[in-house]
Each structure stands twice: as C-alpha cells, then as structure tokens.
C-alpha cells in the first residue's frame, strides 16, 4: 500500500531508488546505516554511469549479502581478504571498477595486512569502510574500533585499553601510504553528513576511474541492535562518542584528486 496525498500529476519525481540497487528487502536491522551506505554507493555508481562496469567484493560481516542487493557483478571474499580479491580482479580486468565494501571487523581486524598493502601498492580499487565499532553479524563483540569503555558482548565491563589497547584509526593509518590517493572519513549520523559522504564516494570512484591510486571512504555507522540503542539514539551515539575519537575529514588527498 503506498501512502500519499495530494495530486501527484503536477509534481516531478525528484528522488527514487537508484538503478544500481535492486528492489530487494534487506536483512539489515531497522535503523542500521548500512542501508544508507549501500544507497550512496548505488547513487554514485548511477551518477558516474558505472553500473555495468562495476564489480563488488563483499566482505564477511553484516554486509555479507551486499552483492545480492546491488544490481552489479559481485563476489564473496573470505573474511578480511576483500582487498586482495579485488586486486586479483582489477589486475586482470583493469577496465572494471572494483569496489570492496568492508566492516571494521573485516578491514581493521583480520584484514589489516590486506588493506595496508593495497594502499601501499596504490592499487586502483575503491574501499567503502563501514566503521560501527562492533562486530554486528556475530552478535556484538568488541572490534578493533570499539571505544575505550564501550560495553560489548566480549567486553562486558567495557573495553579496557590496558588489556585490549585502543581503537585503530584506519584512515589516519592508511593516509601514511604513498600509494593512497584519496582517504577520507565521513559519517552517516545526519542528513548533512550523509550528503558529504555521498560526495566523497563519488570522488573516490573518480579517483579509480582516473587510475590515480588507492581510494577509501571510511563511514562512521550505527549498530542499534548490538549497541542496545534506538535508531535515533544510535545516530546520536555516533555524534557524541565516535566523532571525538574518529574525527571527520580528509586524511589524504593528492593534488591530482583535488581537481576532480
């Protein structure tokens, strides 16, 4: 049942589902911003006309089914290995636009070697890094990006840096590699930031189109279910707790990218 009122005939359709997203019901929890991240990637692919060239490398994590939601060719990587898999695809078919879509468990934990080396090699792929400071799919364990004191199912009394160290700042880390052409951190916790995140994803894809090297957009994201918060509170939690630790901004933008 479609809910509307007023006469639509004089009105222009100005916003609808992007072509690169399939009209499928997703398995994400209510309010989970993975859905927003998916939409932004799809919008960017549509805008740049890349749908028929793109290949998505899906991670292991909540986004493990990502390739079923996008109307583009997709492959399933082993946990943490998406960057290596993307390298294999890109090296053989450089004309394809290859994206990895990874969570923080995938990228900042088991897959750190792979992500550091694609950046180090300046691999011409684009990584969408969804950082929600927790392992979502497996039920809310502590992740390398969990905040000090953050209660999770594997840090019940709150993450204790004396035994588990501090959250990894992946954008800052990867920005140190010469091969990285564009590494930025954005957030999905409100409309203004979602719009900025969209721009960054478009830029990152342009970096790959121009062959300028490795591009990554880190997106601070929510996990209402495992944080034990409502969707609204989760957005606020990102703003109040994650932003101070994970400052938004551009961490590596080489000159050639500035013109894009």
């Amino acid at each position: 049942m479609i809910s509307t009122n007023g006469n639509k005939s004089t009105l222009e359709l100005v916003y609808e589902r992007p072509q690169s997203l399939l009209p499928m019901y997703t398995h994400y929890c209510p309010g989970c911003t993975h859905g927003i991240a998916h939409r932004l990637v799809a919008e960017a692919l549509d805008e740049l006309g890349l749908r028929e060239q793109a290949i998505l490398v899906a991670p292991v994590g909540c986004a493990v089914f990502a390739y079923e939601y996008f109307n583009i060719d997709g492959v399933e990587a082993a946990h943490g290995r998406a960057p290596a898999m993307a390298t294999g695809i890109k090296r053989i078919q450089p004309e394809n636009i290859v994206l990895t879509y990874q969570g923080d468990g995938d990228l900042a934990s088991i897959g750190t070697a792979e992500i550091i080396h694609v950046a180090g090699r300046g691999e011409n792929i684009t990584t969408i890094f969804v950082n929600n400071a927790i392992y979502g799919m497996t039920g809310g364990q502590m992740a390398p990006t969990s905040l000090p004191g953050q209660k999770t199912s594997s840090s019940l009394c709150g993450r204790d840096p004396r035994t588990t160290g501090y959250p990894l700042k992946m954008s800052e880390l990867l920005a140190q590699t010469t091969g990285a052409a564009y590494v930025v951190r954005r957030s999905l916790h409100d409309v203004a930031n979602i719009r900025k995140a969209k721009k960054a994803i478009v830029t990152a894809l342009k970096v790959q189109m121009q062959g300028l090297g490795f591009s990554m957009v880190e997106l601070l994201s929510t996990c209402p279910t495992n944080w034990g918060l409502t969707p609204e509170q989760a957005l606020q939690w990102v703003r109040d707790n994650m932003l101070p630790y994970f400052p938004l901004g551009d961490y590596k933008v080489i000159d050639a990218v500035k013109g894009l």
Partner: peptide, 26 residues
C-alpha cells in the same frame, strides 16, 4: 600478463581467488 608478489600466502591465494572469478587461467 599479470604477475604480483603478494604480502603473504593468505593474500596471494585470495588474489588468485579474485582473478579466478574472471574465468581467466590463474
């Protein structure tokens, strides 16, 4: 043709896995 020395055997086999998805001999 493509040659790449990976950062580990774990990465190497996953590069092979990716390349195999294109149907090429790898």
């Amino acid at each position: 043709r493509v040659f790449l020395q990976a950062e580990s055997e774990v990465a190497a086999i996953n590069m092979v896995y990716g390349a195999a998805c294109t149907g090429a001999r790898v």
